[in-house]
């Protein structure tokens, strides 16, 4: 209160001073900035306020050293096919509360070094902005639902499904998940000749109570190849663990699902 009075006092003094002699001394009071980082608990753990702003920031990620061996999609029966690689994943998420809901931006660059001749590599895991809460609009390079796998990562019921996309998704406290995404698929991903992107569509219907109890249905449609895929899956907490089962049907070649024919398999010409 005292400071406020002082400020008002000094302000009226400035007004008075401008009306009088310009030589009167004016004392400016600098606002005091905090010299520590404040935790932000509005969006879960790990967030802190960017000093001097209302924006909360979180930094996460991982460092991985992995050795891969074999592979049923390598098109080779070579027995001694193995290589190590290293991967770093850095996830930077910024969130702030707005009148339209939570405004989010997230960027997750990944750097690799492979010992199989590929050398170093750069990829995005995700890079998007999003606005909304239970119902949210997301745009950017989105890691889609088809990227999700069962816990064990056998990795042949999912595929790398990251696209430049727009997505409207509902993730309610009532456990329902409803999402629709329109994605730009590259010529490589559709097998088209040109340099233009083709549109893909994907959807998710889910009832997800937890990682151990869920029902999910993923769908995808490739407008260029006019192919579709569906993937129903479910998880049940049984005994000490969780049983998961997933089914998959693809009407033809579609980038959302693993391609066990075409170039991956030597014995096969058609898709």
């Amino acid at each position: 209160m005292k400071i406020k009075k002082l400020l008002i006092g000094s302000a009226s003094m400035i007004v008075a001073a401008t009306g009088a002699k310009a030589a009167d001394p004016v004392v400016m009071i600098e606002p005091v900035t905090a010299n520590y980082v404040e935790a932000c608990d509005a969006f879960g753990s790990g967030y802190f306020f960017i000093p001097g702003t209302e924006t909360c920031l979180q930094i996460g990620g991982y460092v991985r050293f992995e050795t891969k061996f074999g592979g049923i999609q390598t098109g080779s029966s070579l027995d001694n096919d193995w290589y190590p690689y290293v991967k770093t994943n850095l996830a930077v998420t910024a969130k702030s509360a707005t009148e339209l809901g939570t405004l989010t931006s997230r960027m997750v660059p990944e750097f690799y070094f492979y010992s199989n001749g590929t050398g170093d590599d750069f990829k995005f895991d995700e890079a998007y902005l999003e606005i909304g809460d239970a119902l949210a609009f997301r745009a950017g390079y989105i890691k889609g639902y088809w990227n999700e796998d069962l816990w064990g990562e056998l990795d042949n019921i999912d595929n790398v499904s990251r696209y430049n996309s727009i997505r409207l998704a509902y993730n309610g406290a009532d456990h329902f998940q409803i999402a629709l995404a329109a994605v730009g698929m590259t010529p490589d991903e559709t097998g088209s000749d040109g340099e233009l992107a083709k549109i893909g569509l994907s959807g998710r219907l889910g009832y997800v109570v937890s990682d151990s109890n869920y029902l999910k249905l993923d769908t995808a449609y490739d407008t260029y190849n006019e192919t579709y895929a569906v993937r129903p899956w479910a998880g049940f907490g049984i005994g000490p663990g969780t049983f998961e089962i997933a089914g998959l049907y693809a009407s033809g070649f579609i980038a959302y699902v693993p391609d066990f024919t075409s170039a991956n398999w030597d014995d096969l010409a058609d898709r």
Binding site: L150, L154, G239, F243, A250, T261
Partner: peptide
């Protein structure tokens, strides 16, 4: 791929 079924059971 035409179709597939995958399953796993994970436990502590």
């Amino acid at each position: 791929m035409k179709h597939a079924v995958a399953a796993n059971y994970y436990f502590n």
